[in-house]
Amino acid sequence: MSITDRWVEARPWLGTLARLGLAAVWMIAGGTKIGDLAASGRAVAAYKLMPVEVARVVGAALPFVELALGVLLLVGLATRLAAAISAALFIVYIVGIAAAWARGLNIDCGCFSRGGELAPGQHANYLPEILRDVGFLAVAGFLVSWPRTRLALDEWLFRGETA
């Protein structure tokens, strides 16, 4: 078996791993924020990238959207679309964190946590957060390129269709 053959054979399973990993990321991210939507809005407001009222709406909607993305990826429905939206969100998060860094804001990114401004003496460490999101972006990119994965609803819905 050539390396190319192995790759073609392993790819759908790698995709399953990527899909479930990304699903876990979204479900944890959404799940930690869903209990306090006001705090989620404050986390968005702390970036100072939009009017506070808009940040409140975004902060309230985002955890639910993240959870829904997680569910879509978990069951493997519209995988390419869900991965593309994931990638777009990661790019927005990376830009947001980079913007906060560049402007010298001292905030908790609110990625998997409560967010908001850090207390005096606490210093934000943006680089690991950006690198982490870049890693997630790469996983999402993999799924956009090769959305056919095993154990997915897509597989069942689009069976018989050539890739």
Partner: peptide
């Protein structure tokens, strides 16, 4: 399927906004 997926995400966002509004 794509339309349904987008609808799921939009509805999820609206639910979030609705829940938050009702909490305030």
């Amino acid at each position: 399927v794509s339309i349904a997926a987008v609808a799921v995400l939009v509805i999820a966002g609206l639910v979030g906004w609705g829940v938050y509004s009702s909490q305030r």
